[in-house]
Nucleic acid binder design. Structure first.
Lengths: 140, 140
DNA sequence: ATACCTGCAAATGTTTTGCAATGAT
DNA sequence: ATCATTGCAAAACATTTGCAGGTAT
């Protein structure tokens, strides 16, 4: 970390290790809770600061799935991908599709735009939730 | 409006008229400013409440382009569409592409999802901004 | 030693809400 | 008259920041 003038601290190591070992698409609060299982003293502010750094370094990507919280996913050496989000159980599935990406480029070009980034999210019901009628987020 | 137990008030009429006549993708604050040109007394809370109603009725759609504010666009009788957003000047261009939609469906089906809604946003530089080096949001 | 980091609490920015007063039907 | 709606100010949320003390290099 020293190459960017960053220091390796107990808190940062714990936060980063936890983030990568838990995986998925964690909100800061979720990550904070996991971190506090190991060290009760770590403050949210530090988790926010650390995830921001990780994002700036390109090791994590900030995402926003419309639930009002920023979520982070590991990014090291990963391809760009998009997401399917189950609006009932919250499951998030990642996918890649080169043909869609190509068509996005084509659409942008048609409108004179140069695309630097994009996001695409498909919301709906996952396989399991389609057969279960009733209200969302009510796991058995 | 009576069919939903909603009442027609001076504030609502003004907010709704303003929203539809200004058009585009307005944040609540932008809309509030426009509204106050006609009536200084209208509160932000009322604008928030009215736009939420309009959204629930399906007459407006809430959008989130990553600038931290919810933006609303008119929705009455419009097709689904996606957006190109210029990260320099903030210009927003709408587009429709049936082939991309079809491929989204296909991807979802492959993963066992039923899609109920989706969002796709392409961020980059518009035609005009590509030729202007320098910092964003600095209009001549 | 010298930056950089941390925790805390206070501040931020956006959106929501409780409540008493006002207004529409 | 009744019940929805308003404005205001306070509350709620997620996130950021100032600062004084602590820590890695």
């Amino acid at each position: 970390m020293a190459q960017h003038g960053l220091k390796s601290t107990r808190q940062r190591s714990l936060i980063i290790d936890t983030f990568f070992s838990v995986g998925g698409h964690l909100s800061v609060e979720e990550l904070w809770n996991k971190v506090r299982e190991q060290d009760t003293k770590v403050s949210v502010a530090t988790v926010y600061r650390t995830m921001k750094l990780l994002n700036d370094c390109g090791l994590a990507h900030a995402r926003n799935f419309g639930d009002g919280q920023t979520r982070y996913e590991a990014a090291a050496g990963r391809h760009h991908h998009d997401h399917l989000i189950c609006t009932r159980c919250g499951r998030i599935v990642e996918f890649e599709n080169d043909r869609i990406e190509a068509m996005q480029e084509a659409v942008a070009k048609k409108h004179g735009f140069t695309v630097t980034s994009h996001k695409m999210e498909l919301y709906g019901l996952c396989k399991d939730c389609q057969r279960i009628p009733g209200s969302p987020k009510t796991e058995a």
